[in-house]
Simulated scan of single mutants.
Amino acid sequence: MSQYKRLIIVGAGPAGVGLGILLEKLGFQSYTILEADQIGSSFLNWPKEMKLITPSFTGQGFGALDLNAITPGTSPAYSFRKEHLSGLEYSEYLNLLADHFEVNVEEGHAVLHVEKTNGRFTLETSQGDWTCDALIWATGEFHFPKTDGILGSRYGIPSGFIQSYKELEIGQRYIIGGGESGMDAAYHLATNGSRVTVLLEGHLKDFAADPSRTISPYTFERIQKEVAQGRIQFLEEVKVEEIRLEQDEYSIHLQNGHTMSSQLQPILATGFKSGVEQIQEFFEWKENGKPKLSEEADESTLIKNLFVAGPSVEHDSAIFCFIYKFRARYAVMIEHLLNKWSIKIDQNVLKDYRENQMIADDLSCCEVDCEC
Score class of each variant (00 low, 15 high):
F320S: 02
P145L: 04
I175D: 11
D37Y: 13
I9S: 06
D361Q: 04
N348E: 15
P72C: 01
K239G: 00
R231N: 12
Y353R: 04
L123F: 15
I33S: 14
L26A: 02
I176D: 12
E35F: 10
E241H: 06
P145T: 08
K304E: 15
Q163P: 02
I170W: 04
F326H: 05
S364L: 07
E335P: 01
C372T: 06
G156M: 15
L199C: 13
S153L: 03
L67S: 01
A134P: 01
Y31M: 10
G202C: 00
E115P: 06
S126G: 09
T54Q: 07
I21H: 12
I279T: 13
L302K: 11
K25F: 04
E241G: 04
H315K: 02
G140D: 03
G73S: 12
I252G: 13
G275H: 05
L363S: 02
D298S: 14
E246F: 12
V103T: 10
K286Y: 13
I53Q: 10
S56G: 04
G289S: 05
T58W: 13
A186H: 04
L264W: 04
S342Q: 12
V240P: 04
F28I: 07
G178R: 08
G20T: 00
Y330I: 02
E167K: 13
G193T: 01
S342I: 09
P266H: 09
Y31H: 07
E92C: 06
T197E: 14
T74N: 05
T270P: 09
P55D: 05
N95D: 09
P14D: 01
S251T: 15
R154V: 14
P211R: 00
A185D: 13
S181V: 12
E296M: 07
H315C: 02
S194Y: 04
E299V: 10
S251R: 06
E281H: 15
D210Y: 01
T71V: 11
A269K: 11
V368R: 04
A15V: 03
S312T: 03
G63T: 09
F307N: 03
T270V: 12
F144Q: 06
H336E: 09
E367G: 10
D206C: 01
T301V: 13
V114R: 06
E296V: 11
N356R: 08
M333R: 01
A186Q: 07
T139A: 10
T58A: 12
T125S: 10
E89Q: 14
D361L: 02
V240Q: 06
T214G: 03
M50R: 12
E115Y: 03
S261R: 09
D316L: 01
N192T: 07
I150F: 03
L200M: 14
V368T: 00
A77L: 02
T147L: 15
E296Q: 11
I170L: 13
L97W: 02
R195G: 02
F62E: 10
S91G: 10
E102H: 09
E124V: 08
V308S: 07
E107H: 08
Q247F: 00
T117V: 11
I176N: 02
P72W: 03
G149P: 01
